[in-house]
Design a protein around this nucleic acid. Structure first.
Length: 566
RNA sequence: GCGCCUGUAGCUCAGCUGGAUAGAGCAACGGACUUCUAAUCCGUGGGUCAGAGGUUCAAGUCCUCUCAGGCGUGCCA
């Protein structure tokens, strides 16, 4: 597939009487106009000739091209140059890809780019709330997608395990904490303390100073504070890993902010030797007026560091020790300014990799009225959401497929898929209003819909037995629904790359829905097992097998597992 | 105040760096299970793309302004 596509693109590029970037200008046309399209309007302006005339000229020479004759045919519609694969060619290419790659369908060969993806990054001592879903789902999907695009991916969970909040927590635990509660339900208790601190601090603002003081001691290495902090971290991580297991997520590194504290001196040193540090109201800042940004605060007036300082140390570490070419931060859009400042500081340090530090921002989860706030105790626990999802699916199974074996395991998988897919199908920048009903609706354009299509595939394949899937004959004449299904799978192949270039997992999700829709249409219109004609039956089985591989792979990119039957 | 983001069908959203007749799902209504799983499929209705200007052969997409919502705006992360 990769080879043919490249040859088409370079031939198209050459077919124009002027410079033409066939790769960049290639579009996926609306169905009915073929499989690939190149608009000729900008070229038309440059050459001062009608776009249709240019397209016609290109089509004529391309259709003479011996190498492409067997692949497909070029045509012209308005100012567009369109290409449509011959049935035999699209069959050959797609089935070859399936045969060699299976459920890794569409994975590109390695391109020697190392990409660090930082995502999820929950805060230690706080519950894993629904607010963490987006970074986790989007980040996991992107890590998979970048890997499919040939990158070597290093996933990092940048745990929020350092900062003033831990001073507050230490203070709160010493004053109101309960050892018994801590050992029985750690997160719950720490969460209560956290909320209590903030409500108390509203009446007694001096508590804020107490919290800051404890954090300063922590940062200076105070043994008691360190020990307490370490316990909080261990307890939290145990709980987080339980949720990650349910979500099917794991990380190469669980290096939180505290991992970088030994490097903070070096980081500040680099800023200092570059002459970037200025004192302002007792704090140390880097001036960023040349970027139109507010100054970056690198050290507080009490000597303690900030998030930005630790992020700078982390970026340098990832670049210099992990040898990252790209560093992706899957963090909410409310931190946009923070990352603009981080990039600006890196640039001022003279590092040429500043433009390969990329903030993948996304919108927030919201209740219908207000923002979710951990400080006020307004939070929906991820675990509750997953439990509700699994329970909802249990009910659906009881109604639709009561004889199903492994009901618990299937309900868990399908429930998690519903939650993850529901999040990933939307453009990531948009805010999401939390709504139980919407979140637990698994009909129509949902994860379970895609999984259902896959289950239908598996059911057919199981009944047929593996022996029946043999090599397809290429003289098969495709019916329109079969052709549409293949086209959509071809589109998926292209979308993997686009999703990686633009960091948009929803391209994959949309593609999965489209493939599932086309498959369901095929399913109702084209019998497989009941067909007498052996060649046709064999071909359709291959198509079903292909669809199963592609859905398994596509959902896999989104971090979603297929149940096999449901 | 300033900066950034969002505004597409009753609801939730797609619409690929301006391009070919604005697409799905939900909800509504009407059909299809003695049939490879009906968590499905087929059909009908529903849009002055927030509003007003502008650029262009071409604007949902770019620019300006207005309106609405969100986020951010130095010692939290």
């Amino acid at each position: 597939m990769e080879v043919l596509l490249q040859s088409i693109l370079s031939s198209v590029g050459r077919a124009f009487p002027c410079q033409y970037d066939a790769q960049a200008l290639c579009e996926i046309p609306k169905s009915g106009f073929g499989d690939l399209a190149w608009p000729c309007f900008t070229v038309s302006k440059e050459l001062k000739r009608p776009p249709q005339q240019i397209a016609e000229g290109a089509a004529e020479s391309l259709n003479q091209d011996e190498a492409l004759k067997s692949a497909g045919v070029f045509s012209v519609n308005g100012g567009y140059l369109n290409f449509r694969f011959h049935d035999a060619a699209i069959l050959k290419e797609i089935f070859a890809e399936d045969a060699s790659q299976g459920s890794r369908f569409g994975y590109r060969s390695s391109c020697n780019i190392r990409t660090v993806v930082e995502y999820s990054s929950p805060n230690i001592a706080k519950p894993f709330g629904i607010g963490h879903l987006r970074s986790t789902s989007i980040g996991h999907a992107l890590a998979n997608i970048m890997a499919a695009c040939g990158h070597t991916v290093i996933s990092v969970n940048h745990l929020g395990d350092w900062g003033t909040q831990f001073g507050k927590l230490v203070y709160a635990f010493r004053n109101w904490g309960d050892e018994q509660k801590l050992s029985s339900c750690a997160i719950q208790h720490l969460f209560e303390l956290y909320v209590k601190f903030h409500s108390e601090a509203e009446a007694h603002p001096e508590l804020e100073d107490c919290g800051r003081e404890e954090f300063q001691k922590l940062e200076e290495g105070d043994a008691d504070n360190r020990a307490l902090w370490q316990r909080f971290c261990d307890m939290s991580l145990t709980e987080f890993k339980r949720i990650y297991a349910r979500l099917g997520v794991d990380f190469d590194h669980y290096t939180g902010e505290s991992f970088y504290i030994d490097r903070l001196g070096d980081t500040i040193g680099r800023l200092d030797s570059a002459g970037l540090l200025k004192e302002s109201d007792g704090a140390w800042i880097v001036d960023l007026t040349e970027f139109g940004l507010p100054p970056a605060l690198m050290r507080k007036s009490d000597g303690a560091t900030l998030y930005l300082t630790r992020d700078l140390a982390a970026a340098i570490y990832r670049r210099e020790f992990l040898k990252a070419d790209y560093i992706l931060y899957v963090v909410g859009s409310e931190q946009k300014l923070h990352f603009q400042q981080l990039k600006a500081v890196i640039k001022k340090l003279g590092y040429d990799w500043h433009d390969r530090v990329i903030h993948i921002d996304f919108g927030l989860f919201r209740f219908s009225g207000e923002k979710m706030s951990t400080r006020k105790g307004k939070v929906i626990f991820m675990e509750d959401v997953l439990n509700e999802a699994a329970r909802t699916v249990q009910e659906i199974i009881a109604e639709k497929n009561p004889d199903l074996k492994n009901r618990d395991a299937v309900a868990e998988k399908v429930g998690v898929a519903g939650i993850l897919f529901g999040d990933l199908v939307n453009e990531r920048i948009k805010n999401v209003t939390f709504d139980w009903e919407k979140m637990l609706n698994f009909e129509g354009d949902t994860g379970p819909y895609v999984e259902y299509a896959h289950s239908r595939c598996m059911s057919i394949l199981k009944k047929a037995g593996e022996a029946e899937i043999r090599e397809i004959r290429q003289e098969i004449c495709l019916s329109p629904v079969e052709r549409d299904l293949l086209r959509e799978i071809f589109v998926y192949y292209l979308k993997i790359e686009k999703a990686g270039q633009q960091y948009k997992p929803h391209f994959i999700a949309e593609s999965m829905l489209q493939i599932s829709r086309n498959f369901n249409r095929f399913y109702t219109q084209c019998p497989v097992l009941k067909i007498e004609d052996e060649a046709l039956r064999s071909f359709r089985l291959s198509l079903v097998n292909l669809t199963a591989d592609v859905i398994e792979g596509g959902l896999g990119l989104l971090g979603i597992a297929v149940p096999g039957e449901m």
